[in-house]
Design a protein around this nucleic acid. Structure first.
Lengths: 343, 343
DNA sequence: CTGAAAGCGCTTACAG
DNA sequence: CTGAAAGCGCTTACAG
């Protein structure tokens, strides 16, 4: 096969009647190019469908065009979805994703991060919960001057960009919907108390009850940890109460699935006797029966945005950031399925 | 920070007292290097912990050091596990993984594959079921002379390497274990009839019954499709029989989970009244209660091996392969959990 | 079996 | 605002 040679920067330069350098500048968003030249070059780029050779670029520049992703054993569904979305976005922008799992031993995780910085030389890092809130990890990155984006609602670090959804409002809305459907006895299983989202979801639940003037006995609140197991334990307690709740709002889908399982074992009809709602909209929500009503996190959008932000280079100089630019909130969506219904 | 410059091939060459070319040859497994020289070079490589610069390598050679992975909406658990294992192996070998999801429309999938070949210029492809058995996809790859590894037990293509486990034997063993535990009424839910594994697992089940002289009514065999939904439908039928089975072997975990859910809704105790076993050992097997007894597929090993095979270059010249080298069987493992017990 | 030269396709640093 | 030169760290192709 006579393979058609890929177009190079030189081809573009020749057809546009400029030097390779000018083309390079246009492609790298260098401001010091006249608008006229820029348009001329872009036209040829489009015409020839020119894509820079990433390897050459990487070799010549100091940039690695690698973005690191550090995650810590969240649900397979969540990580898989996030990963695929991030991979696609990276590819579109000429970057590559380097994935690493955090270790139980925090020191090993720090080692991994240092390796990503020194050996792989990542241009930026994406931090998923709960690593996104680990001070030690953040310090290592900050010291090495490696930009990072955190997926977290936690605002404790004012100096770094983060992506989140309005967990509080989502929890409020979900709870209020249950109320509007006639439920008054609504229990809540709180998520892992080390993650900021747990607090926010709990608060949204509480405020929705309050603003609808519903009082709830303290036994309706159970502390979970986002695991299926913790959901089972909470469900056993909640369903053993004399005055059983008619609805249970769990802080994630895994715990909601556990509630459904326990209820079914006890012969409790869902949603007839008990409505169950979760949070996240992972695949698990559609892998049990009845399917779980839940809140859809914009996981794909979060993944894409985190890559885009790092690739844009706007956070490369981490010292001069206005706090206004740091927060990126994405929309959520309530998903009604068969696990909840009108009382 | 005074960043210590990375060691280059020249540093190695100097310390070993040879030319850069010789180092390059050693690193690329070129046979034409004397053993003595090779050892001398390797010693220095180890000492300096030298890692070749992938970009330079890619730029200078015609190889892309990209491996493509085509998958078609299998379970999130499965793809996520496979993906992470493949990513790690790629990184270790200096490769990068380019992931693509197959479209419902086969023509679009073919387009994707062509893009991977022409634009990304992958050095090889990994094909997961069921794309691994699609003649059109295989033809495109073969014509473009792009080596590929299929994850499939299907032997219909004698000219390409594939990785598999002994699905037949695993199904046989799982069934026989149920028999040894005292079960005589064992039902089976067959997997998607378009995937070769379904047939093999079904056959293993049948032969285990036969070799133990157990006859089974035809109503004990239900056709599923690997989805949770299909498992529910099969379970409803099986549990409505006058002469109910005491054990159900589902061809994957998703269908087994569905069986458990339906049984629990009907007040059937698991494993007291009914033992349930699945296949794959995906996360779902541990995400429902009781945890599902199952067969552990060596997913990580399959992922690693597929990358290694492609990186080794042994299949680059696809025309001269002995059929003996093509098959790579990995071990499985029976996992006993709470969903099954002695009758 | 080993090596000196040229080049892969970009960008950096220096000019103007 | 634009360009000519040198070089990033490897490998290919040619010698011997």
């Amino acid at each position: 096969m006579a393979e058609p040679r890929r177009t190079r920067i030189q081809d573009v330069a020749e057809q546009a009647g400029v030097s390779m350098m000018t083309v390079s500048r246009v492609l790298n968003q260098d401001k010091k190019v006249s608008n006229k030249t820029r348009q001329k070059v872009m036209a040829v780029v489009e015409k020839l469908n020119y894509r820079p050779n990433v390897s050459a670029r990487r070799l010549a520049s100091s940039k690695s065009f690698f973005i690191g992703l550090l995650y810590d054993n969240p649900s397979d569904s969540y990580i898989s979805q996030f990963l695929l979305a991030a991979l696609k976005k990276c590819r579109a922008l000429g970057y590559h994703l380097v994935v690493d799992e955090a270790h139980l031993d925090i020191n090993k995780t720090i080692e991994s991060v240092k390796q990503l910085i020194d050996v792989t030389q990542v241009d930026g890092m994406i931090l998923l919960p709960p690593m996104c809130d680990n001070e030690d990890v953040l310090e290592v990155l900050t010291k090495a001057n490696v930009p990072f984006v955190r997926i977290t609602p936690d605002t404790k670090l004012n100096s770094s960009p983060y992506i989140c959804m309005d967990d509080y409002q989502a929890a409020f809305d979900v709870t209020e919907r249950l109320i509007n459907q006639g439920h008054k006895k609504i229990a809540h299983i709180i998520g892992n108390n080390k993650q900021g989202v747990s607090r926010l979801r709990y608060q949204g639940y509480l405020d929705a009850l309050r603003s609808n003037k519903i009082t709830t006995p303290p036994e309706y609140i159970e502390q979970g940890s986002f695991t299926y197991q913790s959901g089972m334990e909470a469900a056993v307690k909640l369903l053993a109460l004399d005055d059983k709740p008619t609805a249970i709002f769990a802080a994630n889908d895994d715990m909601a699935a556990a509630v459904i399982s326990i209820a079914q074992q006890q012969g409790i009809n869902i949603p007839g006797d008990l409505s169950v709602v979760g949070f996240d909209d992972t695949q698990l929500a559609r892998s049990v029966w009845p399917h779980i009503s839940t809140v859809k996190q914009p996981i794909n959008e979060m993944a894409e945005l985190s890559v885009s932000l790092l690739a844009s280079g706007q956070y490369d100089n981490m010292s001069n950031l206005k706090s206004l630019e740091l927060r990126h909130i994405l929309d959520f969506e309530l998903i009604e399925r068969e696990s909840s219904s009108i009382k």
